[in-house]
Design a protein around this nucleic acid. Structure first.
Length: 460
RNA sequence: GUGGCUAUAGUGUAGUGGUUAGCACAGGUGACUGUGGCUCACCUAGUACGGGUUCGAAUCCCGUUAGCCACCCCA
């Protein structure tokens, strides 16, 4: 009813343009009508949902730059890209990341599919890659797979700088070997990557969680060791004592740190094989002159990690300072229903990396040619030339709003056009085009029939 | 998820209960009737949303939304 009477948008807009105080009066007099109108008028005022954001044209070049570096890097290391779905059955994540972890427990976007299955937006990449690896029997086609991915991940956390609900990760998985050299290789990927993009203020911290058997044994030992100090631990750590002892090693509170320093380190509690593996790994890094520090507090939150784990942090970007995390996961593939195959990998948060970088190169594509027309009746002929230029591989554009000559020139300048082609009465009569070099200011004419050839010479 | 801080044109900001809501950059138009960058003039555009207190609110209070900070957790 109301909608019929109110009718056109124009009326609503006029009404909505009135001062706020009149709208308040209206609101008091007729709240229902007010909210109805508001909804009609505000219908285009959507905003992106919390924790998600738009990457606008002005920022896209740095993303493309980053991706191109990553691709060339991965080619050199002989890794192949894999693209996997954004949604998976929820169990893919619960089986791998662990039911008890917060990521699975409270941070996943999970909903019921029409089939009745529970499906989730991926909160990380490894689980899906391993699912794809097993499903497509990649292990039967090759004994060793080196894969990488770039894509969106989703976690329902409270957003803050360096923490979004949809964010991007670059990840690498090397599946099929348990040589410490492959662990070292993925570190060298990061080392070279950071050198190439000019990231300096980062720290590599490593630790050794031990094999699957060790992990359970170590948890028991730690619980036993920490029990006497229960009163000195914070309330969070008391909770962790039952649920996830390892996390106590990562607590930032001073008292908890003190307690932790009194008990043995995890890397000392692991079995002899794991100790040797870790020593070899460290030795290889030393031979390459890659700086790292052993850190007992690096415990990782995802259940699937075993053996050497690592984290790269970057100072000065706030509390969310971990830009890369990774490590070995020798049991995951078997745990997810595949054969017993060892693997190692990492994930890098691209947004966090951008926060760390001071200078991000912005390569803006420059126009070769910008066509300026003196009168809108030359639009058709200009448009045909534009088509020809582009067909011949030349970057070209014109102003479709057709302002004054001056306005078009300004536009050409703003877009960084190298040459402006001017089409006017004079030119058309003589079948010539005027070409202006925007750096030198020189201007000359060429015949229309030779135009494309001339331009090709110019922009080469 | 817990606790806290913040919200003014596209961007960065000024404005401590009564201002025509000021400034800079960006954007548009013109000076320059067929020529960009510099300069000058003019124009466009804002109190996040909703409610309350008050004669009067950008300013005080409440709620919502969003961002930020710390925690939880994590890339």
């Amino acid at each position: 009813m109301l909608a019929d009477n109110l009718g056109e948008d124009g009326y609503i807009e006029v009404l909505w343009a009135c001062p706020v105080k009149y709208k308040s009066i209206f609101h008091r007099a007729c709240p229902v009508g007010f909210h109805y109108l508001r909804r009609l008028f505000m219908k285009t005022k959507f905003q992106s949902i919390r924790g998600t954001y738009d990457i606008l044209p002005k920022d896209i070049s740095m993303w493309q730059y980053m991706e191109s570096i990553l691709r060339s890097l991965m080619d050199r290391f002989n890794y192949s890209q894999i693209k996997i779905p954004t949604i998976e059955k929820t169990e893919v994540f619960t089986r791998s990341i662990g039911k008890e972890t917060d990521i699975v427990n409270k941070e996943m976007y999970t909903f019921k599919h029409i089939s009745g299955d529970s499906i989730s937006l991926r909160p990380e990449g490894t689980a899906g890659v391993i699912r794809a690896y097993i499903q497509n029997s990649l292990y039967k086609k090759e004994k060793f797979s080196k894969l990488y991915y770039i894509g969106s991940m989703f976690r329902k956390e409270r957003p803050q700088a360096g923490r979004n609900r949809e964010f991007h990760q670059f990840g690498v998985e090397a599946i099929g070997s348990n040589s410490p050299y492959i662990d070292a290789e993925i570190i060298t990927i990061l080392d070279l990557f950071f050198k190439e993009i000019g990231l300096r203020n980062y720290e590599l911290k490593i630790n050794n969680l031990g094999c699957n058997k060790d992990k359970n044994r170590i948890s028991k030992i730690l619980r036993k060791e920490l029990e006497p100090f229960k009163d000195q631990l914070c309330s969070d750590c008391n909770r962790r004592l039952k649920r996830n002892v390892l996390r106590i090693l990562d607590c930032k509170k001073r008292n908890c740190k003190k307690v932790v320093s009194k008990i043995p380190e995890i890397s000392e509690l692991v079995c002899d094989d794991c100790k040797k593996y870790y020593d070899d790994f460290k030795h290889i890094l030393d031979t390459l002159n890659i700086k790292f520090s052993h850190d007992n507090s690096i415990v990782r939150g995802l259940d699937y990690y075993t053996g050497p784990v690592f984290e790269i942090t970057c100072r000065g970007i706030g509390s969310q300072d971990a830009i890369v995390a990774g490590g070995r996961y020798d049991n995951l593939i078997e745990q997810m229903g595949g054969p017993k195959i060892e693997a190692v990998g990492f994930a890098l948060g691209i947004e966090r990396l951008f926060l760390c970088l001071e200078d991000i190169p912005k390569a803006k594509v420059k126009l070769d040619i910008f066509i300026v027309i003196v009168d809108s009746k030359f639009f058709q002929i200009a448009f045909e030339f534009l088509y020809d230029l582009r067909k011949n591989g030349i970057t070209a554009d014109m102003d479709y709003t057709i302002p004054s000559i001056k306005g078009q020139m300004k536009q050409a300048d703003k877009l960084g056009a190298k040459f402006v082609v001017l089409l006017g009465v004079e030119e058309l009569r003589n079948k010539k085009m005027s070409i202006k070099n925007m750096t030198t200011g020189e201007q000359f004419q060429v015949g229309m029939d030779k135009f494309i050839e001339e331009v090709k010479k110019l922009v080469r």
